[in-house]
């Protein structure tokens, strides 16, 4: 009987030791807590290399705060989220051309932000070669946030809230452009769009099927659009001239400016069709406000130049019924998980 008591006490002690070892392991260091990004099944391996920028809860929180902080612009009026609106799939609702501080206007439309970790290069012309340095362009462009990066870093260093957030995310209060860009990248990396009705159908989620018209639209998409707007990203990430008539007022030569090659004249990145009905207006200069204008353009508006892509040289004929079916299919690409995610929504800056 006495022995039994000793054994029970021993067993209890062992249990305590084990529990203690476990909690010690999970709390080690007390630094930023790792964040595990759930990658959607069926997607390719991300292009972005996370090895030098491991996601952490505090890093993402800092990135999110900066994304919505209008004080990052020269006159404290424009934040990243000012143009990249969540309800428009992080594009700019109703704005054909991007605009920034002091009434300045750019020459291209605001690109949507999601699935960025699968992009090889950024901007409509692919001029930016790494997700981490993408924020540099809108921050410093005089048509956008127009800030002097050095001054901005000094301004942020004076702010106690930023100092504590940088410490939480990176272990010290030093505010550097490298940390700033990496934190914004961490937040943007979490903008993943892979939970639309289309995705549920592809994953054979129980009870989710395409309607007859959605299915018909999907078939048209596969026949007439999927060569460039390749699944599952709905872009093949290439640069092409789709025959969109050149606008002298904007004089945008596209990717030729980046490569110095006339072969890239009027070439722009193939945009994703995910969330397309939430991210009007369309094309690199936002000239079409309605998706039916885009259908009409491909049906009979293509202007062939020497660089025009062979796939659209003869246009893409679409009947009225096909346009309707395509429209109904494109609706299934709207991802309310992205658009309504409370983890991505605007934070109050005061």
């Amino acid at each position: 009987m006495k022995h039994k008591a000793i054994y029970i006490a021993g067993a209890f002690c062992l249990l305590l030791m084990l529990v203690h070892a476990q909690t010690k392991k999970s709390r080690r260091g007390g630094g930023p807590e790792p964040f595990i990004l759930q990658l959607p099944p069926g997607f390719p391996k991300p292009v972005y290399d996370f090895s030098n920028n491991r996601l952490t809860k505090q890093g993402i929180a800092l990135g999110r705060f900066m994304f919505y902080d209008f004080r990052l612009s020269r006159d404290s009026t424009v934040s990243c989220g000012f143009c990249h609106q969540q309800f428009a799939a992080f594009g700019h609702f109703d704005h054909p051309l991007a605009h920034g501080v002091g009434g300045q206007q750019g020459t291209r439309s605001v690109p949507v932000l999601f699935n960025m970790i699968w992009q090889k290069a950024f901007m409509w012309d692919g001029g930016v070669n790494n997700l981490e340095i993408q924020p540099l362009t809108p921050l410093t462009d005089h048509n956008e946030m127009a800030v002097d990066l050095k001054e901005l870093l000094q301004k942020m260093q004076r702010d106690p809230k930023y100092r504590s957030m940088f410490k939480a995310a990176f272990g010290s209060e030093a505010i550097t452009s490298e940390r700033m860009f990496k934190a914004i990248t961490q937040f943007v990396a979490t903008m993943i769009s892979a939970n639309s009705k289309y995705d549920s159908v592809m994953r054979k989620a129980p009870g989710v099927i395409f309607s007859e018209e959605e299915q018909a639209g999907y078939t048209i998409f596969q026949q007439k659009c999927a060569a460039c707007h390749k699944e599952p990203l709905f872009t093949d990430l290439s640069y092409r001239s789709n025959g969109l008539p050149y606008l002298p007022a904007l004089n945008d030569v596209g990717r030729m400016k980046i490569t110095n090659s006339t072969a890239d004249y009027l070439h722009f990145k193939v945009p994703s069709l995910r969330n397309i009905l939430k991210s009007s207006p369309y094309m690199h200069d936002g000239r079409y406000f309605d998706i039916y204008q885009v259908f009409d353009f491909y049906d009979h508006g293509v202007q062939v130049t020497p660089g025009t892509d062979p796939l659209v040289r003869n246009g893409i004929p679409l009947s009225a019924v096909e346009k309707r079916q395509l429209y109904i299919f494109l609706n299934t690409l709207t991802d309310y998980t992205l658009i309504k995610s409370t983890a991505l929504s605007e934070v109050l800056i005061n």
């Binding site: 030098n52 920028n53 790494n130 981490e132 870093l153 490298e178 860009f181 990496k182």
Partner: peptide, 12 residues
Amino acid sequence: VSGAQSGALAAE
């Protein structure tokens, strides 16, 4: 092509 850098290579 390696993204954000520090020190002499910092963007600012």
